[in-house]
Design a protein around this nucleic acid. Structure first.
Lengths: 223, 223
DNA sequence: CTCCAAAATGGTACTCAGTGCCATCGCCTG
DNA sequence: CAGGCGATGGCACTGAGTACCATTTTGGAG
């Protein structure tokens, strides 16, 4: 009966203690002691106390980066959807562990902040990728890239949280739907004018009659 | 010639030292010493080393909360735009200080994370406010609230960063424009049908003639 | 099985952020 | 002058994270 490797024992001990006493009330020494290991060994396996809870955040970043890298200009949006699905699937694979982490991050402000910061890095990747893809250095394009990245990440988080809370049993389908909804918000650049297929939607509020707006509408449509 | 208050001296000393040696290379003792005060006094004025750089993040949160609170159902979106403008104006008021902070957060990962976490709190406020405003507990509405909040915050950050980098001299106009663009992404639910005062016009870019769209436009306007 | 080298481990001492406590100083008021 | 009060400074403590070194364990190669 071989012991499980130290890394695993440490993670188990950490989560157990966090459940028992709370995150702040648990010291690294406590964790190491319960894992039957020296304090030094803890820091050798996990960069920090927080890192026990978010062990493979870096790997996840690489996963996204790789998926985005292997895409052509025409498949960019597919790559984005794929990358998002990849992240979601990673959490689902973790199963119970992800849910325990969620409980912790919901309670402990420091951990919530850390999580948000991680998400910020994902978002940055998406933003840069989308901006590159658009290729248009215009300020308006840049804003659109920012909005799109934010929406993509928000959609993912939304579905992920639903799954973590046990509000859905089919998160993958849901995230695909959510991504479709997000991408629908942002008209594919160039596709509408050229083919007459795409749809650009602009909404504003006014007191005027529809007929009074027709000239402006014509301008919008006919460019 | 009275000295400026300790709080100010501490902030000055901190920024000066961060510029000279970098953030991590500066200890709280260094800051206190240069400010000519005891270490205890530092922590009395700023909760942490990071807090010297983000002093009124809490006040900013309250500012947003207050502005959102003083709004009726029909002025919800105005409140959101206002709150965003409020935050932007706060940074602009800070002037050079905000720019120095930006330089720091661009260089130091820990500070960038902290900043992102702060933004996450703003976003949460907006998300909850928008969700309440929509009132619709549907999963689809919930997703839309999330997307909208993320977009609102992203738009603000986009313009703010442009101003911080000196890429615009009229950020307020830009943020208003950006907000209009964001709100245009999300068709206002129920606003058109209810009063007959406001008119929500939706313009599609499409291959069809405008006249062919009139029936649909009427339907949207007249509910 | 033995021996050796590399990897993993444990211990110790250190820096630094952050907290708690208590004594002190300056200043204002009655 | 006495008393109070807020701001300060010093001091000791906890706990995270780092650096270094000695020791043990492990996994091959012979």
């Amino acid at each position: 009966m071989n012991k499980p490797p130290a890394r695993t024992r440490l993670a188990d001990a950490a989560f157990a203690l966090f459940d028992e006493r709370g995150y702040e009330q648990t010291t690294v020494d406590d964790i190491a002691e319960r894992a039957g290991v020296g304090r030094t060994t803890f820091f050798r396996h996990y960069r920090s106390k927080e890192a026990v809870i978010f062990p493979d955040h870096d790997r996840l970043l690489e996963l996204i980066e790789d998926r985005l890298a292997t895409s052509s200009h025409s498949t960019a949006l597919v790559a984005v959807s794929d990358a998002v699905r990849l992240v979601l699937l990673h959490y689902i694979d973790e199963g119970d562990l992800a849910r325990r982490r969620y409980v912790l991050t919901s309670k402990v402000a420091a951990l919530r902040d850390r999580e948000i910061a991680s998400v910020g890095r994902y978002q940055r990747l998406f933003r840069e990728f989308i901006a590159d893809w658009m290729g248009d250095p215009t300020e308006s394009a840049s804003l659109r890239a920012e909005l799109m990245a934010a929406s993509v990440v928000a959609a993912h988080n939304h579905v992920l949280r639903r799954w973590l809370r046990g509000e859905t049993s089919d998160p993958v389908t849901e995230v695909d739907e959510a991504m479709r909804e997000v991408l629908a918000l942002f008209p594919a650049p160039g596709s509408a004018p050229e083919a007459g297929l795409g749809t650009t939607v602009v909404a504003f509020r006014t007191g005027q009659e529809i007929e009074a707006l027709l000239p402006e509408l014509r301008r919008l449509v006919e460019g």
